[in-house]
Amino acid sequence: MRQSTATYILIFVFLTAGIFIKNPFILNMVSLSALTVITVLGLNLLLGYAGQVSLGHAGFVAMGAYISSILSIKTGLNPWLSIAIASAITTVVAAFIGYPTLKLKGHYLAMATLAIGEIIYMLANNLITLTGGHQGLTGIPMLSIGNFTFDSEKKFYFFSWAVVLLFAFVSNRIINSHYGRALKAIHEKEAAAKSFGVNVHLYKVAIFSLSAFYAAISGGLYAFYIGFISPSSFSLLKSIDYIVMAFVGGIDSIFGSIITTVILGSLPNILTSLQDFWPIVNGGLLVVAAMFMTRGLGGLIKWKRNTF
């Protein structure tokens, strides 16, 4: 089977499951996982296709969440428009960070994004008049289309997985185009790729900005779904969670990432008593994946390739 087909089937399974799940706790948990999937899909593009690590994706999620919420609360702007503006700003900021750092060796981007993530985290904590500080921001309106408001777990469940479908579709289209081929060339043979006519630096900056865009959209939707945001949802540990999900799921595997994200996103909510062990589990997963299966779970499956 082609990986893209398997991915769409998987998403449709989640969508149909929504019809039968009654328990709001589970619906909520899997909806939140869906939002996380969007961020992880973006991170996948960066890891798997530009070969770079971002330690600050929680910061981009935070930018999406905070900017859109503040716009919507303080100026009364339409939530959808707020999310669009917040995501655009986040994308530009990412391009700004990526431009100098992506000319350098791999760990520069990791460190620069770590710094950005921390800066955004500290701003969220300290710009109290705008962000509410560590107590957070409340009164974020709900999303609605016309008279239809996403006011129940069930409604948002379908909506969130529909968004996953949209972003998985976009990722698939890019990966399976000439851009995907060029990105794979950059990942494997960067210097030679230039001589194939690939503008390596431009593509790296573009893919990094795109991945920040995914994260910002995810953050914006999160804010308007929960109605409340506080800095603790966007800490460095979240950025590392995203890396674990993307890397263990398979850096170039959308299918593997979705499964891993839903599992790793849900487990801490189910096994709450094991909370203190979670950093060790996450770290252990990263170590095992980095040492023994760099293609991740998705790499264990032999996919049929796209042919023309």
Binding site: R181, A182, E188, K189, F196, G197, V198, D252
Partner: peptide, 19 residues
């Protein structure tokens, strides 16, 4: 400098990327 993740066909097609 061939790309292992791509087929021979895709590797050749890569040369046309800029166009």
């Amino acid at each position: 400098q061939l790309i292992d993740a791509l087929t021979v066909k895709e590797n050749i097609a890569l040369g046309l990327h800029a166009k």
